[in-house]
Design a protein around this nucleic acid. Structure first.
Lengths: 197, 197, 197, 197
DNA sequence: GATGAATGAGCATTCATTCAT
DNA sequence: CATGAATGAATGCTCATTCAT
């Protein structure tokens, strides 16, 4: 019984990984079903049986990737009280996730807009909302009590992860060679300097 | 005499603008020659007569867009001496360019990697090198004399424009509605706070 | 079981025959995929599924046609001992093949150079080599023992089939109306007269 | 006055030679106006001014090439009386013309059918008729008086030039390397052996 | 005569998706 | 569940030809 299930699960996972590798390398529209078929070893029919169409593979991939990141972040923040450590923790978690999942990160960075267009008001936004809700919940008390500089709410995330994200994009595309992890302190310091009261 | 020239130039420009509007809206691979044809009023043959193929239109567009931004930045920095004003000036110029040329900015943000892949070691890198050379020339004396915090060189640009870029991406994609110009101070202050000694 | 196979084989064959008819009538570059599609009843996608591209259809066709001719010739020569009968047999086989497969012959005559250019050092040359090897094996003993006039080796085939081929080209293109089979004796006699010691 | 004329004539000739080089290398339909433009140094408009369209360039080229060959042959036959020398002379002239004008020969061999299709009942056939008429006039008395073997009239030319033509095709396409002139005797002897009474 | 920008029908090819086996 | 042949709309691009300057 378990075997049957796992066979199917295996297939699904193989396809997902193959798709990630393609999407990360060529983007969604630059990847063809045939390429995913080739890299996964599954048949065309199997791809469609499991996911319905190419876009849905992308959405599944995106969701899974973001959920992982969200989960890491949630865990990190739950263990943190001080504003400084919290802000830095966001940067650190962000950078570590990227370094641990470069293909996923490349996919998320470069294909976000397409996935968003596909998903139009569905699961994606849901996850997103939860994520931002969680962040807000963590942040607003600190802002109120003056532990973090008061700024327009929609600017915080940009200031915190913007620098690391900019470097990550360059690094993931090969334009920078130094591993982003070497700059964890640089970018988390920068974030905190910009936000400390 | 001028007329002959300008007829041809006009066409070229019409095509370029039509392509920009398409690329900005649908990305390079999402835009079809037919769409550009329709929006420009030129014939297919004319498109190919002037640019050779779709990719070359993208490269021409990218180059022109970046050159404009580079030129603005150069001018801004030439008029600035103090480190603080200089750093803030970079952010301000960046934000103003984006707000003045949202289509161009969207295109540059979302299609950079594709254009880079097309252009492989050509004109693009050339312009890029000049740009970074100019920035370095402006920056290094300030770092040396302690007017700006000492950091790994490849991190400066990320720290300076990263936050604004992150917000710009969201704004340009419609996920944020507040005009980025309203946050010019927020982002330029953040940049300076992170870099001041 | 057989049905599945044959469905696919059938399609392949239909396409091949349709392509032959087109290529023979308009040449390779003069035939469009659409024409082949129309004549074969297959869809565009099916054409590409089975052959990859137009050129490969041509190569497949050429190979098949030549193999048939080679096979006939081999069989004919195996049944022959005398030099005279052998030489004449080559001409006879050549003419009969042409008359039995006029479309194939027209295609082979008129598109050989293009197919050769496509196939560049592949399967084609292989078949060719085998063919000439077989002919040589059959011929050289006869030359050595004086049963056939001694000539530069690369001239034999021209002398044997040249006349028939020249007539065949005219006949196949409609410039001659008398069926080439009526001249079987004329051309096989001519070949032998030119080669007998 | 002469200069003006010759400028124009020069252009015409440059175009013709460029077209010959293209047609000989890629065939008529494989050659584009742009290629001819490039090789000739003329502008597109100039090409059309002088020839009207691509096909007419081909016809002009074909006619000129054949006329040269016809003229040579006529001259050669006029100087010959004996049947044997005449037959051999045809082969010799044929081979020499090919060796002297390989591009022209390649063009004539490979593009004859296309040119014929273009020219439909025009100049081409006219020249052809004259040519065959001349040959007939020279030949029929010899056949009648028994100096040449009696054969179906439409077979003579095939028997005479067929072998040389077959070798020439292979040589011109690079499949044979030995210069065809080295086999002048082989092929003219073969022709005579096949035709002597 | 010369030039080259403009035109648009035509073409090969790709690719997501369906569906019978 | 798996397979892969079949489908056909969509797309980038070519190229002969025209014509205003």
């Amino acid at each position: 019984m378990k075997k049957r299930q796992s066979r199917s699960e295996e297939r699904r996972h193989e396809i997902l990984m193959a798709a990630l590798s393609c999407f990360s390398e060529f983007g969604i529209s630059g990847s063809t079903i045939d390429m995913i078929k080739e890299r996964s070893g599954a048949s065309v029919g199997s791809l469609y049986h499991h996911f319905g169409n190419k876009e849905k593979i992308a959405v599944a991939l995106y969701t899974e990737g973001m959920n992982d990141h969200y989960a890491r972040l949630k865990k990190a923040l739950e263990e943190t009280q001080s504003a400084e450590l919290g802000v830095k923790s966001i940067v650190v978690t962000f950078i570590n996730w990227i370094a641990d999942n470069p293909e996923w990160a490349r996919f998320v960075f470069y294909s976000r807009s397409q996935v968003a267009q596909i998903d139009k008001d569905e699961a994606l936004k849901q996850g997103n909302r939860e994520h931002w809700g969680m962040l807000k919940e963590w942040f607003s008390p600190l802002v109120k009590c003056g532990a973090v500089k008061q700024l327009p709410p929609e600017c915080y995330s940009s200031i915190i992860v913007g620098p690391a994200q900019d470097y990550a994009r360059r690094w993931l595309s090969g334009r920078e060679i130094t591993d982003i992890r070497e700059y964890i302190d640089v970018f988390s310091d920068a974030a905190w300097l910009a936000l400390k009261p």
